[in-house]
Design a binder for these strands. Structure first.
Lengths: 417, 417
DNA sequence: CAGTTTATGATAAAATCAATACATAAGTAT
DNA sequence: ATACTTATGTATTGATTTTATCATAAACTG
């Protein structure tokens, strides 16, 4: 589009213009946001463009190394397709997952595969600015450890254990993250990490990571995390359901239990978390004279087959089951995935959940329902955060900026082939 | 702009080609699916097309009378915009709302405004084929009563009091609609009414009708209907949340109540419907020696200030409040609208709902929440059904078929101008 | 192995769309 | 009123995209 005819014919000197055309970028979003690899034919079908145009634009994207050929798989009677896919090595995604005691951070490729990671202890009550500096320093460190191979940072994804205003990328409402309420996360990070910053609730990101591993992208799934606290992420047709204030799925303080006397850390009585949260089980174990402080302690005791711990976890399972029964009645998901520290105790928690759900809910809502345990994956939060960043930066509105960022020369020249 | 070259120039005989171009149709979807009227400038911005192209395509659409000029309103310092809007008179939408005892049907214009309607008594237990024939006959009757003014039928929307598989347009699972399970509604109607048929749950359509009346299309709203039974429709960012089996919002049989002894008509104990449903209140009134059969009877008694009825409705309000509290915790909607026969008793029901919700839910979820009563509108279901049809038939995938249908000559010629 | 099927590449003519420049319309601000 | 601002119409030119045609590649079928 820019320079058509440099001097004479032979535009071959560099037909590769400085930046992909608008049309090529539009095709790139199709490729980047599609669930799997796309063949030329798939692209023709889904975009409505002609084969010629698709071919031209793909060449453009190849020249910029934004896409690569993928495994040729399908063969339906004729010549197999030649799928293309986003070049996972065209950039890096920075991710960080704030827990209550540690911050877990790392770098992934554009396919959200974790390349390098690290963990640092921190205090969630320290001022947000300090925590964010900790993260940007950590990311910078990882970048240099990875070596300057020319890959640019495409974005940063942040997982926070709090309700998040997704649009504004701020923490909403009071939570364990004191001082974060409405703190300008993007503003603070802008200088140190001048890349797009996406922030989301930890459970939403776990849910995103979970659906990514499933065949059916349009699935209706709920990921419920039972750890120290309780919360869930809701995904319908590939979209996260966030609610009006980012508080959708904040089910830890529903009052469903038949044990209305338990005092919750939120100050109310009878919250499910006050019975089924890891902290509540630890409290109840201590009342029985058993040493337990954290959710991890509880899980360890269950693994050691301490009967009191098992019993309390099973009770928790039934209480969580009441929450899940509500979720199923309201949302009619196709799949419930239970994760978090308490879910890693095996079937003890799940059996209680299943018992209550199949007893409470209508058969229509449960006949195709599967309730399963999340695979143990300590970096699932990072994975989800990276997926979120990828989905965002290749949006039609953002592709142009993203490719500019990815293609900008690091400092040295990167002569083509 | 109107008359280019009436007779002379040869091809002028009808520059108006038989059918709008692909590009024009693509613009038509933008106009038809936009929330309000779109000015030329708006269209340039939202479509990314050039002003010239937009102008050309609009002319094409004007020539086919698919769009009309709308009220010129906005004026931001300069010449006011000249918005266009879908020509509401370019076609008709047939709608039908099946209740438990009556079927309510009508015809609307393309803006979902009801033009003519009728009601027929029927038995919901009669075979689906007969009921559908009843509807197609009724629609045909209304069409002739409206007079053959050349407007073609663009689609049919059906509101059913049952869980619906939206894609397949079938009733899912056992319900009050015996015999409808998996009945091929589209197949049966195809001969008599050869138009696109959309089927949805009654509550979803009430929810659609409700959001249409609101400013913010991206609102998160829940419409909960408390009539004979209880159910709700969930809308997020303009999309209906239907769940995996179309059973999302089927909250009538959640077991939340502190009155676990009530037998529900579903056979289980302690369903909310068994306490708060219209049929349950009528049952409890009869137990007190007060004549009441239907939800309407209960509402009438409340309006007559019969204290027992008021008391039971207030109790129902608190039980519904428990359901709504669950909905709020799970979905964090910005707005709850309570409708149905029981809601028409004024504030008696609502006060109970508010009491429980504000007591149970986290302040983050309730601080921006409004809980209001649905305006009394017996044709809200038809309105919602028509809106659903409109949204569907102007989808990119369907515009072409729809315009062909709308522009096909009825029989007599419709000479231009 | 020859024939069939599906996927893709290359090329030129035809159609469509965007950019530009110019002109006009219909408001608001002063 | 006059200037300014925003919205829109029109015509020309050039760029992009499609259509149509021909050609080739790489599987599968029998």
């Amino acid at each position: 589009m820019s320079m058509q005819n440099d001097r004479c014919d032979l535009p071959s000197s560099d037909k590769t213009s400085a930046h992909p055309s608008h049309g090529a970028l539009s095709l790139l979003t199709h490729i980047a946001l599609a669930r799997g690899d796309m063949s030329r034919s798939d692209l023709v079908d889904t975009t409505g463009l002609s084969r010629v145009t698709v071919g031209q634009r793909l060449n453009e994207l190849f020249e910029h190394r934004l896409i690569v050929e993928a495994e040729r798989t399908k063969s339906s009677g004729g010549r197999p397709t030649r799928p293309v896919t986003l070049n996972q090595d065209a950039g890096l995604i920075a991710v960080a997952d704030l827990g209550e005691t540690h911050v877990h951070f790392g770098l992934t490729d554009l396919d959200a595969r974790l390349l390098i990671e690290d963990t640092t202890a921190f205090d969630i009550r320290q001022p947000p600015g300090e925590t964010l500096d900790l993260i940007s320093d950590g990311i910078g460190d990882l970048m240099s450890r990875l070596g300057g191979d020319g890959r640019r940072l495409a974005g940063l994804g942040l997982s926070l254990p709090a309700p998040v205003n997704f649009q504004a990328a701020t923490v909403e409402g009071p939570s364990v993250m004191t001082g974060w309420d409405n703190f300008d996360i993007r503003g603070h990070l802008a200088r140190r990490l001048p890349v797009p910053v996406m922030v989301d609730n930890d459970v939403n990101l776990l849910a995103i990571s979970t659906v990514a591993g499933m065949q059916d992208r349009s699935a209706q799934i709920v990921f419920i995390k039972v750890g120290t606290g309780i919360g869930c992420g809701i995904i319908a047709d590939g979209l996260v359901f966030r609610g009006a204030n980012g508080a959708a799925g904040d089910v830890g303080h529903m009052q469903l239990t038949a044990e209305p006397d338990k005092l919750c850390r939120c100050g109310k009585l009878g919250c499910v978390e006050a019975v089924a949260g890891g902290w509540a089980i630890a409290r109840d174990l201590r009342a029985l004279g058993i040493e337990a402080e954290t959710a991890r302690d509880v899980a360890d005791l269950v693994r050691q087959n301490v009967p009191e711990a098992i019993q309390l976890v099973r009770r928790a399972g039934r209480v969580v089951g009441e929450v899940v029964a509500s979720l199923v009645s309201v949302l009619n998901p196709g799949r419930i995935v239970v994760g978090g520290m308490m879910a890693e105790t095996g079937e003890h928690l799940l059996s209680g959940v299943r018992e209550i759900v199949y007893q409470r809910c209508l058969s229509l809502a449960t006949r195709d329902l599967t309730i399963s345990m999340a695979p143990h994956d300590p970096s699932a939060g990072l994975h989800g955060a990276a997926l979120l960043v990828r989905e965002t930066i290749f949006t039609p509105a953002n592709v142009a900026e993203t490719t500019i960022r990815l293609l900008s020369p690091p400092e040295a020249a990167r002569q083509s082939a």
